[in-house]
Amino acid sequence: MKKVYHLSSCNTCQKIIKELELPNSFELQDIKAEEITKEQVEEMHALAKSYEALFSRRARLYRERELNKKELSEQDYKDLILDHYTFLKRPVIIYNDEIFIGNSKKTVAAAKAAIHG
């Protein structure tokens, strides 16, 4: 699988996608325009081994819902990601059987190295 889950309105996501110089074989999914499905989240989890790793604590709703004051379980993380796209840490890049989550320089460099050898 070659896929990127991103937000087209996110400048950071767009910058990373451009930097990665993705081959045409990659599928891009704007998670605001096309909601992520339960199956897609479970596919990500199978690679990441954790819903928490996929979860963004930077989402505005995280504080608004006072989730920062709660102890969240793996099921909570999964449910929240499915509830609202902003809870998915972005971008999520899947290349074959590897997953790269988020926008840290290290993650982006690892994704680029994997994609371009």
Results as ranks from 00 to 15, higher is better:
Met1His: 12
Asn103Pro: 03
Pro91Phe: 07
Glu27Lys: 10
Leu28Thr: 00
Asp79Phe: 00
Met1Phe: 01
Glu66Gln: 14
Val92Tyr: 05
Glu34Val: 12
Tyr95Leu: 08
Ile31His: 03
Glu35Leu: 14
Lys106Pro: 09
Leu61Ile: 06
Ala114Arg: 11
Ser56Asp: 09
Ser25Lys: 14
Leu47Thr: 09
Leu28Glu: 04
Leu72Ser: 05
Ala33His: 12
Asn24Gln: 11
His116Gly: 09
Asn68Ala: 10
Leu82Ile: 05
Phe55Asp: 11
Arg60Cys: 08
Asp30Pro: 02
Ser8Leu: 06
Thr12Asn: 08
Ser9Pro: 02
Leu47Met: 09
Lys106Asn: 10
Asp97Ser: 11
Pro91Arg: 11
Asn11Val: 01
Ile94Arg: 07
Thr37Asn: 08
Asp97Pro: 08
Leu22Glu: 03
Asp83Gln: 15
Asp83Gly: 09
Glu19Phe: 12
Asn11Phe: 05
Ile94Met: 10
Glu71His: 09
Ala109Glu: 15
Lys32Asp: 02
Tyr51Phe: 15
Gly102Asn: 05
Lys70Arg: 13
Leu7Glu: 05
Lys112Ile: 01
Lys106Leu: 09
Ser8Met: 10
Ile115Phe: 07
Leu22Ala: 05
Ile81Trp: 00
Lys112Leu: 06
Ala33Met: 14
Arg90Ser: 00
Glu19Tyr: 13
Asn11Leu: 12
Arg57Ser: 15
Ile94Val: 15
Gln14Met: 15
Glu42Arg: 07
Lys38Asn: 14
Lys49Asp: 11
Glu34Trp: 11
Tyr62Thr: 04
Ile99Ser: 01
His45Lys: 15
His6Ile: 11
Tyr85Pro: 12
His45Phe: 15
Ser9Asn: 13
Arg63Gly: 08
Glu39Lys: 13
Tyr95Ala: 08
Ile17Cys: 11
Glu35Trp: 12
Pro23Arg: 08
Thr37Ala: 08
Ala109Tyr: 07
Lys15Pro: 11
Ile36Glu: 10
Leu7Trp: 07
Lys15Gln: 14
Leu82Phe: 02
Tyr95Lys: 05
Ala109Leu: 14
